[in-house]
């Protein structure tokens, strides 16, 4: 069973996750601006910037994060920002909520000058996240777990990060067992997505380089 302390932890994370989303004005821009490759690139860059700001605000609310060494906080965010963004985008795109303008977002991504080689694994990832039908609690916890990955480059005190990540993994594991009693592999599937995210993060660096050249 999930203990009271774990319930509190989950509530804090979920509330912070829901409170910190890309501003609606930004989402509306998806429909307003023009659809040239350059315009799409600029708009996606602007959205990514906003998403990083929102991600940092969410992260500040993860219990214990602000007590970590300041440079370690930056290393964790720098190492995970791209992965956290892919997770959030996957959730937005698979939710198909009308006010998120998901079709417009998908069209802009597809016509932004990004190479097929990168786009295919990215949309495959979005699809694989969609298939999991994650609950909000699972999404929020998985994002927190991604951010609190101890082995990011330049993290000095990995043990301090592990001490924050472990309780999140424990709650998520229990939550998965409770919510998906018919799917004992569900928790393992979620963790598998984290491995996929790492691969995407790696591609992303290469993709940015080729994008810049184009």
């Amino acid at each position: 069973a999930i203990t009271k302390d774990q319930q509190v932890l989950m509530k804090v994370i979920v509330e912070a996750y829901n409170r910190h989303q890309i501003p609606q004005d930004m989402a509306k821009k998806l429909l307003q601006e023009q659809y040239s490759a350059e315009e799409n690139f600029l708009l996606l860059t602007e959205m990514a910037t906003s998403q990083v700001q929102v991600l940092v605000e969410f992260t500040k609310n993860i219990p214990g994060f602000l007590s970590l060494d300041h440079e370690d906080q930056i290393a964790l965010l720098k190492g995970s920002a791209v992965e956290a963004m892919f997770l959030r985008s996957a959730q937005v795109l698979s939710s198909k909520k009308p006010n998120c303008h998901t079709d417009a977002l998908e069209e802009r991504i597809r016509k932004s000058g990004m190479s097929e080689e990168f786009m295919t694994p990215m949309f495959n990832f979005y699809k694989s996240i969609g298939k999991l039908h994650m609950m909000q609690e699972e999404q929020a916890l998985l994002t927190a777990i991604t951010i609190l990955t101890p082995d990011r480059p330049y993290v000095k005190d990995q043990q301090a990060v592990e001490r924050l990540q472990e309780p999140m993994l424990d709650v998520l594991r229990k939550l998965c067992a409770l919510q998906h009693p018919q799917e004992p592999q569900y928790f393992a599937h979620l963790l598998g997505r984290l491995t996929e995210l790492r691969t995407l993060n790696h591609y992303h660096a290469e993709m940015l380089t080729s994008w810049r050249v184009n």
Binding site: H20, T45, A48, T49, V52, Q53, V54, V56, E57, K60, H70, Q73, I74, L77, K78, A81, A205, L208, R212
Partner: peptide, 21 residues
């Protein structure tokens, strides 16, 4: 963010500031 340097700048600023205010 178009570069890693840009990303770090955004993170540092966001860590110091407060979007909620």
């Amino acid at each position: 963010p178009a570069s890693n340097l840009g990303l770090e700048d955004i993170i540092r600023k966001a860590l110091m500031g407060n979007l909620e205010e």
